[in-house]
Design a protein around this nucleic acid. Structure first.
Lengths: 210, 210
DNA sequence: TGTACATCAGTGAACGCGCGTTCACTGATGTAC
DNA sequence: TGTACATCAGTGAACGCGCGTTCACTGATGTAC
């Protein structure tokens, strides 16, 4: 770790940063959550990291590549949040709702990051590949599979996973609209509201059988 | 209609436009669908409408107000699409799925407009008020109410409507990701895929009763 | 019916701004001998 | 261990660009008499 031999004070950064890549991504996240996605320019990120506007070009080809890195970190953080929720749940019913609540909470706590994640995906018309192979989406699929006792056909399993994912994403985007405040209050808080919506996602099927 | 006395050729617009407000909103929609939301600047809209960059300021306070007008028209168009789907359906089961399919199709056919609609809402932390009172959201709620035979409690009805809305919105945003192409093909097309996901939104409830 | 005049809805040039990116440069680092 | 040198990772000034908005203006319209 060569830069540690530097006798810099805590304020004065050495000429060579040491890990500017990571510092830039962190600076980007700081800007996102304090000023929102519209403030996320390359220059602003460099400024926030205390570095000249040209410095990022030694680490990222262009602005898009930096944004991709930010989004990638976002997906990893979402994976982690879902894993934590999955491990905490007692049974498979609770595991399913818990995943949903954790997903929505992640989006609510990191709204700007969440938007960048999906904006990057949209630009490519594709969600991150690793999400389907081993990431967040895969955790949802496994939980559903486990819940059905492994009896669901591959196509049904995939459709159910997409359905759950859509519901989570939709709710994540709706949760902050103030129209729903009265309902949240009537139910005694946001968490109860979330659980209520997730439970009602089965309502149509119930009606079919009535 | 004073401007009709003008002896203008079909190309030469009279000095006074006649209905520049509307023309600007239409120009904005044209830009949205051909170049996407990032190209939607006030100057671009004026250019597209064949008018100087300052002209819009006689009709809209600022860029935001023009965007609001565009979004407002978008919500009206969505209302109309849902109404058409609702009237076309034979029974309440078909009505519900039909609404979902129509919603997603609207988003897929007008992706940039759809994004502007929600971006405007997000900026205000609020969906358009008229949507809850008489618009698209209300149509979904009425259909669910009818489907439950009017027996659902107000809170359940509201939760079910939100659940359905979230599912529709989530699916609208996911539909274009190429990861799902194989599944769409396996099911014989996008429409079957949509219907499949909507039907699976009841899966969790079914499992609860198994 | 004609005319003076207020008002409305355009024009086009200009403002300052922040952006992404490039460039020639320089300071710091690591390595071969 | 010391030194020459290639390479790496920064600097800061500059580029051209499109943006939102303002301004003084002017052409067209409608109205009062």
């Amino acid at each position: 770790m060569p830069w540690m031999t530097q006798t810099a004070t805590s304020e004065a950064r050495p000429y060579h940063h040491g890990d500017l890549s990571r510092a830039l991504v962190e600076a980007a996240r700081r800007i996102l959550e304090t000023e929102g996605p519209s403030a996320l320019s390359l220059r602003a990120v460099a400024r926030e990291a205390g570095v000249s506007p040209a410095a990022p070009y030694h680490h990222f080809k262009d602005k898009g590549e930096l944004l991709d890195a930010v989004a990638h970190e976002g997906w990893a953080a979402l994976d982690a949040a879902l894993t934590e929720a999955r491990l905490k749940a007692a049974d498979s019913q609770e595991r399913m709702t818990g995943l949903g609540v954790a997903y929505v909470r992640f989006a609510r706590d990191n709204p700007a990051l969440y938007r960048v994640m999906y904006d990057c995906s949209r630009d490519k018309d594709a969600l991150p590949e690793q999400m389907k192979e081993e990431g967040a989406y895969c955790q949802v699929r496994n939980t559903i599979d486990e819940r059905s006792g492994g009896t669901a056909s591959p196509i049904d399993l995939e459709l159910a996973t997409i359905a759950a994912w859509c519901a989570g994403h939709g709710l994540a985007e709706m949760i902050s609209f103030k129209q729903f405040d009265p309902l949240k209050e009537a139910l005694g808080g946001e968490e109860a509201f979330l659980r209520g919506v997730f439970e009602h996602l089965g309502m149509f099927a119930k009606l079919d059988q009535a």
